[in-house]
Nucleic acid binder design. Structure first.
Lengths: 243, 243
DNA sequence: ACTTGACCCTTCCCCTGGGGCAGGGTTGCA
DNA sequence: TGCAACCCTGCCCCAGGGGAAGGGTCAAGT
């Protein structure tokens, strides 16, 4: 009959861990020797190894306790669930590892140079600093969260702004910021923007980040919040688009 | 500028988590608006995504805090360490999964039938119940921890005990339990056992569980503890074997 | 017989990474 | 004007142990 320390060394856990398992009722207290020391047999070692296997799989101690009084069928069923969950966690860790490597690779490049150049163009074209800042925030977010599709979206956008007629529409959007929300020029602008969009993309969906991401909505929400006129404009454009 | 709830939904964490990160100093508090609400920009979202990536990789929050004030070289070095550790954890989880499946497969078979039969033989051959119990503990442990090699070891042992001359040696070992530690019969028995071992295995190592496991030592320690005579016998046999 | 070091016992507080609730203020929309 | 949905701080709670305090036990050496 071995002591708690020997058992701990053998199974590869701390003494404290064993005592915690006793306290939580998942590992029954063994008999004590004359001096009050716990004495364990080989069966206890087996039990502890099983318990540890479950605990290392991330099963909460309370669930392990319950499992020990479950019948065999329920036990097997639980093991299958735990196995599935482990598979899931392994996949999650691998995904995290991928993101970590992206972080390592792109740590110092929040925005490609061409995006920075584009933002400077905006200022020269007469966009307000407020608009330029919003655009910078938008692209930072997009590049951080969708590194694969961001550059495509950016090129599309840069192309639009290279067309003087379309650029006028965005400039008008920018400068509508301080209009009254019910100014009729807003309705007119919304109509022209919707029309230009239809012209550019036809009936296809304009390139977007797809449902998985809420970034455009988030950004647009932040944009709208800063001006009632912008908010109305957004509402009108959506209405025309969905009509 | 978005609120804490929007930020939380976007990045996929709880509001509480964000506040905890503020408290622990890894995510700087943003400015508040007129009503005392925290207001975040796109840069904050980027920061939070980076922090989350590290946190999901299991990096302690305090370490993330320190990393944010580290220079780039140290940061990259840290990322490599974290990546390695992640690889290690994934391997560990897969190993756990393997053990879990063994547990699922062997849940109800602590000992093969032939081992049980062997233990009954022992009793009929004149071994004491004490010896039989020790043997049972030993085999339970061996089968639980080395399922692959256990059956080989068992067959070897069963073969030994099938030989009446060798069996006599083990019977003598068993009954030496209550001798005085300095009884000369112990020296004699140790000599005969060492000789028989050499005869059976030559100069090869007898089959063992190899260094990776401490089970034999553990069992032998428990065995020795129960009788000074057995302990002396063990010491003598080792001395002769290593001579 | 005594000491030393390695064990063992219990009890208690500490840590991380949040979750959840109370009690109160602030928005936006109808 | 009310209601739902936010937001604020402060507080306690959880798992799964770690570690220290304060004390008993055991084996070895001297």
């Amino acid at each position: 009959m071995i002591t708690i320390g020997q058992l701990a060394r053998y199974v590869g856990v701390s003494i404290k861990t064993i005592r915690v398992y006793h306290d939580k009722g998942l590992f029954p207290e063994p008999d004590r020797d004359a001096s009050g020391y716990r004495r364990y047999g080989a069966n206890d070692a087996i039990d502890l190894i099983k318990i540890r296997t479950l605990a290392e799989a991330g099963v909460p101690l309370a669930r392990i306790r319950d499992l020990r009084s479950a019948n065999d069928e329920a036990f097997q069923q639980a093991l299958r669930e735990i196995d599935d969950e482990l598979t899931h966690r392994i996949r999650g860790l691998r995904a995290t590892q991928g993101r970590l490597r992206q972080l390592a690779a792109g740590h110092l490049t929040p925005l490609p140079d061409e995006v920075g150049a584009h933002l400077e163009h905006l200022a020269r074209w007469g966009f307000t600093p407020r608009w330029v800042d919003l655009q910078r925030d938008l692209w930072i977010l997009v590049f951080a969260t969708h590194p694969d599709r961001a550059i495509t979206l950016f090129h599309d956008q840069a192309e639009i702004l290279a067309d003087p007629a379309l650029r006028q529409l965005f400039l008008a959007y920018d400068h509508a910021h301080d209009l009254d929300a019910d100014d009729p020029r807003i309705d007119d602008l919304a109509r022209r923007i919707a029309e230009a969009t239809r012209e550019r993309y036809g009936l296809d969906e304009p390139p977007e980040l797809e449902g998985a991401s809420e970034i455009p909505a988030l950004i647009q929400g932040a944009v709208n919040a800063s001006s009632p006129a912008w908010q109305r404009l957004d509402t009108l454009i959506r209405a025309q688009r969905d009509a």
